[in-house]
Amino acid sequence: MPADDSEQPKQPIASVWTRPRRGRREQPALSREQIVSAALELLDAEGADALSMRKLGTRLNAGATSMYTHVANKDELIELVVDAVYGEVDIPAAGGPDDWRDATTRCAHSLRATLLRHPWMASVAGELGVTQLGPNVMRLSEGLLALFEAAGLPAREADLAVSTLTSYVMGITTTEAAWLTTLARHGRSESELVESLWPAAEEAAREHPQLLEHYVSLRGKDPRETREEKFDYGLRMVLDGLEARLADSGGSGKG
């Protein structure tokens, strides 16, 4: 007979990562990995609004009981799927003070590419907050800490550097992902939609000459290249700031 709820240890916060695994007497019909994989496929195909426990059960040809063995609700499922996505990020090993910048750049680009492969992340990642305690998030955080500490930052500043870098990448990429979701909803290519928007944008900027000049300069340019250029520029600024800090603190700052 299962223990009474009052006998279970209380969770510090509602999360799949803080809830004790439920005991079971027999092997469930579905594994956690199967459930997460199917949920990821559904999210990639139809977006965050399409995900429900009932729809996922239909997709897996399984009853709710099979899934609730592993997750208590949809929120816990989202936590698992988000962590699975972070498992796709490439984290270069911390080699030393001379290659931290190249390694960090590769990691930042890998994080961006991962988020853009799963644009639904833009609508859910920010809602998880402190409950991002999964093994892949831990691996990413640990890897970045190691990179910045190898560069010469003390542990406390390395933690701040990780927050600065990930906030930049997540912030700009979330906007990109939302834009890609809009494109998918309209069923048009990025170039087609941007080209159709230019007349309205230029008309709105008629009384703002600097902005109008900027819009005119972008006309005919591949919008994907423009997004990548913006990302690279901002990333360089973040890393330039960290490099200057390393120089001030006596670290290498090379890369």
Rank of each mutant, 00 (worst) to 15 (best):
R21N: 12
R21C: 09
R21A: 15
R25F: 12
E26P: 00
E26G: 14
E26S: 15
Q27I: 13
Q27L: 14
A29S: 12
L30N: 03
L30Q: 10
L30G: 05
S31P: 09
S31C: 10
S31I: 11
R32Y: 07
Q34I: 04
Q34D: 10
V36F: 05
S37L: 10
S37H: 12
A38N: 06
A39T: 07
L40F: 08
E41F: 08
L42P: 00
L42K: 02
L42M: 15
L42A: 11
D44M: 04
A45I: 05
A45P: 01
E46M: 01
E46L: 01
E46G: 00
A48M: 01
A48L: 08
D49T: 06
D49E: 12
L51S: 04
S52E: 03
M53K: 02
R54Q: 05
R54D: 07
R54Y: 08
K55C: 00
L56S: 02
L56P: 02
G57T: 05
G57M: 06
T58W: 06
T58I: 06
T58Y: 07
R59T: 11
L60Y: 02
L60A: 01
N61T: 07
G63W: 07
A64R: 14
A64G: 07
T65H: 13
T65Q: 15
T65I: 11
T65P: 01
S66K: 10
M67T: 01
Y68S: 08
Y68T: 12
Y68P: 00
T69G: 03
T69K: 10
H70F: 09
H70Y: 11
V71D: 00
V71S: 00
A72T: 14
A72C: 07
A72S: 15
K74R: 15
K74S: 03
L80D: 04
L80F: 13
V81D: 06
V82Y: 09
V82A: 14
D83H: 11
D83P: 10
D83N: 15
A84F: 05
